[in-house]
Write a protein that binds this DNA or RNA. Structure first.
Length: 475
RNA sequence: GCUCCCUUCGUCUAGUGGCCUAGGACGCUGGCCUCUCACGCCGGUAACAGGGGUUCGAAUCCCCUAGGGAGCGCCA
C-alpha cells in the first residue's frame, strides 16, 4: 500500500507561528443545542487569546434552513457571551457565496478531477441496496467515470441532468492527525467517487464547507465526530485544489441523560430552554467547558480564564453525558458571584423599595434561579395564604394551639416580630420545635431563609394572618 | 451488512509501564457551624467493562469478547 500521505503542506499550523483561526459553522435548521454550543465554546477557547474565532452560517439547504433559526442561534451565542469574541465583520452566509463555490467546482472539472454522473437517484439507491445485500460497503461504482468523452459531451449538450463527482485517486492513502483522535489513515479506495455538486448545480455541504474553511484561513476545525468520515474527502478536495488544509479535531457527541445523542430531541437540550429555566450563561459556559474535557480549574471562570486553562489536547475521546446536577452546581456558583445590586433588579414589584437589598441578602443562599426570588417574594409579601406541606403541618401539630395563641398575643401587644422567638422560648417552647413551627406557619415549608431575616422582612399584618391561618389548620 | 471509533467511581474527569493501597469535582452520606432550614467548612462512600497475553512490574502495550457510538446520500 502506498503511503503518499496528504499531510498538511504548511508546518506553520503546527508550530503555532501563526495565530490560531477557528470557526463555528452552524446549520440553522433548529435551535442551538448543548452539543453545538460546546463545539462553539471549544472553538472559541482554542482561539483565545491571540487567534480569531469566525462564524459561518451554513444555509445552503433551503428546504430545512430558516432565518428564524439563524437569528436564534446568533442570539444564543451572544447570550452565552461568545458573541463578544466573534469577529462580526467575518460572519458570512454560504447562501451568498454560490459564485465562489461554482468557481472552485469549475476548477475541479478543468483539472479533470471531477466528472458528470448521469445515474438517477433511483439507480443509485438500487445499487447501494445490492451492495449492502452482498455484505459490501455501499460505494459508487464509478460507472460514469468510464463513459467515453464523446458520450459525456453529447449527453451534457442534450441537457441531461448530471451531478458532479470527484475522481478519487486510486491506491492512495489519506493520512492526517486528528487533534482529538490522533493519527488517521484512510485508503482512498474506500471512499468511492463522491458527489461534489448536485444536478441543480449547488455544491454539496462538505465541499462548500471545506472551501470556506480554506479560503477563510481557518487553521483548526473543531466539529462533531459525525464529520470525521468527511475529513479524508475534504483533504483530498483541498489538496486537489491546492488550497491550505486546516487541522481537524473531532469532538465526541454529547449524550442526553437517557444516553441518546443530544441532537435528537432530548429534554432540556437547547440553550434556549436552559435560559428559560433560569440558568445563567456563565453557569452553562463553565459546565460545557468541562463536559468531555479536562480543565485544570475547579472554580467558576470567565471565558478568558477558561481559555487560559483549556487545551485541545485535553479533550476526551469518549462521549459525555449531560448531567443536570453538575450544571446546577455551576449555576449555584454563578449565582453566588452575582452582586446584590444585580439580583435586586430581578425582584418582582411586590418587594418594597426600601426592603429590596435586605431581601436579596436574606434570600440568596436559598435561591438558584430568578424565579425562586419571585417565590419568596410571594411568600413574604403575598396576600394569599401559603400552602402548608405535610412536614410543615406536622411541625404545627407538634407545638399545638397554645404556641400560636402566645405568638398572636405578643403581636397584639405590639411586640416586634423579631422578638417572637424570644417570647415563645420564654413560654417554654424552644429550639427546633419553635423554629420549625414558626417557619411552617409563616412560609408553609421547613426550608428557607433565616427566620431572623424573615421576621424582619415580613410585614407584621401578614405574620398575624399566617399565624391565624395556622390555627385554622390545627382545628 | 460493511468500515471506523469509544469503554477509569452514578456523572464529568486525572492518569500515557513503577510516584496508583487509582487522585479531584458533582451527587450521595456522616459531622461541625447554627435556638431551625439553607449557605459554608471538615470527613466518608464509590471505578480501571470481561478474558487472555507481553513484562520483574500494566488503568497504561497487544489480542479476543461484550456493550455503546458514528459513518456508509444529488442531508448537513
Amino acid at each position: 500500500m502506498s503511503l503518499s500521505c496528504h499531510r498538511r503542506a504548511n508546518p506553520a499550523y503546527h508550530m503555532s507561528m501563526k495565530p490560531i483561526v477557528t470557526r463555528f459553522a452552524p446549520s440553522p435548521s433548529g435551535f442551538l443545542h448543548l452539543g453545538n454550543a460546546r463545539t462553539a465554546l471549544f472553538s472559541l477557547l482554542a482561539a483565545l487569546p491571540d487567534g480569531r474565532f469566525l462564524l459561518r452560517i451554513e444555509d445552503t439547504d433551503r428546504a430545512r434552513v430558516s432565518p428564524v433559526f439563524t437569528d436564534a442561534v446568533l442570539a444564543d451565542l451572544d447570550w452565552l457571551g461568545l458573541g463578544a469574541y466573534i469577529d462580526h465583520q467575518a460572519i458570512w452566509r454560504q447562501s451568498a457565496r454560490e459564485a465562489i463555490y461554482r468557481g472552485q467546482l469549475d476548477r475541479l472539472s478543468q483539472l479533470g478531477l471531477s466528472y458528470p454522473c448521469f445515474c438517477s437517484p433511483a439507480e443509485l439507491a438500487h445499487e447501494r441496496e445490492q451492495l449492502r445485500a452482498r455484505g459490501l460497503p455501499p460505494r459508487y461504482s464509478g460507472r460514469c467515470a468510464r463513459l467515453p468523452e464523446s458520450e459525456v459531451k453529447a449527453r451534457l449538450a442534450r441537457g441531461e441532468p448530471a451531478a458532479w463527482r470527484f475522481r478519487v485517486p486510486g491506491g492512495e492513502t489519506v493520512c492526517f492527525v486528528d487533534r482529538v483522535r490522533g493519527p488517521q489513515t484512510v485508503p482512498a479506495d474506500t471512499l468511492g467517487d463522491f458527489v461534489v455538486a448536485r444536478a441543480s448545480g449547488e455544491p454539496m455541504f462538505f465541499f462548500a464547507n471545506a472551501i470556506d474553511d480554506a479560503l477563510a484561513g481557518v487553521t483548526l476545525v473543531l466539529r462533531g465526530e459525525d464529520h470525521l468520515p468527511n475529513t479524508p474527502r475534504q483533504i483530498l478536495l483541498l489538496n486537489a485544489l491546492k488550497l491550505p488544509v486546516p487541522e481537524y479535531g473531532h469532538l465526541p457527541l454529547v449524550l442526553g441523560e437517557s444516553g441518546v445523542p443530544l441532537s435528537k430531541r432530548e429534554g432540556a437540550a437547547s440553550v434556549a430552554e436552559l435560559r428559560e429555566q433560569g440558568f445563567l450563561p456563565l453557569a452553562i459556559v463553565n459546565y460545557l467547558a468541562r463536559l468531555g474535557a479536562a480543565i485544570a480549574c475547579e472554580d467558576l471562570a470567565d471565558l478568558k480564564e477558561l481559555a487560559g486553562v483549556f487545551s485541545v489536547d485535553h479533550i476526551g475521546r469518549s462521549p459525555a453525558h449531560f448531567d443536570r446536577q453538575q450544571l446546577l452546581h455551576w449555576q449555584r456558583l454563578a449565582l453566588a458571584r452575582m452582586p446584590d445590586e444585580t439580583l435586586v433588579a430581578w425582584l418582582p414589584a411586590e418587594v418594597p423599595a426600601q426592603a429590596r437589598a435586605a431581601f436579596v441578602r436574606a434570600v440568596r443562599p436559598n435561591v438558584l434561579f430568578a424565579r425562586d426570588f419571585a417565590y419568596w417574594a410571594a411568600v413574604i409579601y403575598g396576600a394569599a395564604p401559603v400552602t402548608i406541606g405535610t412536614a410543615a403541618g406536622e411541625a404545627l401539630q407538634a407545638v399545638g394551639r397554645p404556641f400560636f395563641d402566645i405568638a398572636l398575643g405578643a403581636l397584639a401587644d405590639r411586640t416586634p416580630p423579631g422578638e417572637l422567638p424570644g417570647r415563645l422560648k420564654a413560654a417554654g417552647i424552644g429550639g427546633k420545635r419553635l423554629f420549625h413551627a414558626l417557619r411552617a406557619a409563616l412560609t408553609g415549608s421547613l426550608e428557607g431563609p433565616e427566620m431572623r431575616d424573615l421576621l424582619v422582612l415580613m410585614p407584621p399584618d401578614i405574620i398575624s394572618r399566617r399565624l391565624m391561618d395556622a390555627v385554622g389548620v390545627l382545628c
